[in-house]
Nucleic acid binder design. Structure first.
Length: 119
RNA sequence: CCAGUUGGUCGGGCAAUCGCUGUGACUUUGUCAUGGAGGAAAGUCCGGACUCUACGGAAACACGGUGCCGGGUAACGCCCGGCGGGGGCGACCCCAGGGAAAGUGCCACAGAAAGCAAACCGCCGCGCGCUAGUGCGGUAAGGGUGAAAGGGUGCGGUAAGAGCGCACCGCAAAAUUGGUAACAGUUUUGGCAAGGUAAACCCCACCGAGAGCAAAACCAAAUAGGGUUGGCGCGGUCUUUGACCGGUCUGUUUCCAGGCUAGCCAACCGGGUAGGUUGCAUGAGACAGUUAGCAAUGAUUGUCCAAGAUGAAUGGUUGCCACGUAUAGCUUUGCUAUGCCUUACAAAAUCCGGCUUACAGACCAACUGGCCUU
């Protein structure tokens, strides 16, 4: 797994597909690199430094566990929400797997309809 | 036993499994070993170390800061010990605590008056008047206003009063005693003058360059631009080397001297961006002892090396125990079961010394007051 570090990469991902869940928001955008990339964002609105760090760690552990589910040639960004602090870990795992699935199914269908619309 | 004061310590533990990161080793790209948040890491409010910039020295002025005395310290606006004032029965706590007789300003509302005093109601005397009262003068005891009204209490004194006089208290000055000093005590004298405000200007004493690790140093792509050298070429005239005449630069003018005088190509050089390395973890260091000191702290001996990330590591998940809490049940000093944001406040970012603020709860020591027993 590649880590996203540049501001540009995050801005690009924000314009891509989006899936909102209770504990987090998942964004995804195609990229040229074969290895999937992942970045984390936890804003100051969520809490103080201790809570933000904890959310980031849980999300990182989450993405490490489910690294097989991420598609190659894609960049992902996980935005932490307050509920990620206390939601059970197994539940977070399920919702992340579902969120990835949803993004890629809707992406394919939208690709087809989008192509049709452009014509 | 209850209530309290001060100082200090800790602020979950163990295990399994999957990871992150620093260091070391090696059969060198993976394995092993080992280290990995706090008392406030926080706020960024003071003081330093360190780095760069500026700077000949010194003084003055301006600006900012500090402000009882002595000590500690690398330094401080910090700490310790005293002094003075205030609070508490007490242990103890609190104080932005220099100067208001150098000057200027301000003192809302109320009140007659807010400051080299003045006089609203009063009180007293004299004149006028039958009385009610009124004119002039004296006075500041009483009333009323206010945060504050030109010492306080008592006696004398007086027309009424007043430091007008006296006693005590307060205040000031001088002498003297104790103390390093702040200051305290005593005596004498003075005569009641000197309201508050300096987190108003100000005066006095002392201190003070600026910016900060995104400091700074080094290595160093691509692109653009710069310099040096060489080649071709190079304002005008002469047949080339070159010479002369021009132009321009060396601050200006004259003289002398020297350099450069379109452009293109190649090689080399240095600055510098992305990026990387250092800075950067051995330090005003930690722990234990001895010793000087009332203490802060100093001296000294021994042992030890204890986080170093950079979209930012130090964790995710699970089990057991301890603690706390809520609910329910019971053979109600208590026990059992179940649940919990399984803990409070909060996470290093160059490093130290402080201050301030936040903090569920647990524990230790010394001391104070009260009750009971002996």
């Amino acid at each position: 797994m590649r880590r996203l570090k540049k501001r540009m990469q995050f801005l690009k991902a924000a314009r891509g597909q989006k899936a909102v869940r209770r504990g987090f928001v998942l964004q995804a955008v195609p990229c040229s690199q074969n290895e999937p990339g992942i970045g984390f964002t936890v804003t100051k609105r969520v809490g103080n430094a201790v809570q933000r760090n904890r959310i980031k760690r849980r999300l990182r552990a989450l993405s490490d566990d489910l690294s097989q589910n991420f598609h190659p040639n894609y960049d992902y960004v996980l935005i932490g929400r307050k509920e990620a602090l206390h939601e059970p870990f197994s539940q977070l795992q399920q919702s992340l797997a579902k969120a990835i699935k949803k993004i890629h199914t809707s992406d394919r269908s939208e690709g087809r309809t989008g192509a049709g619309k452009s014509k």
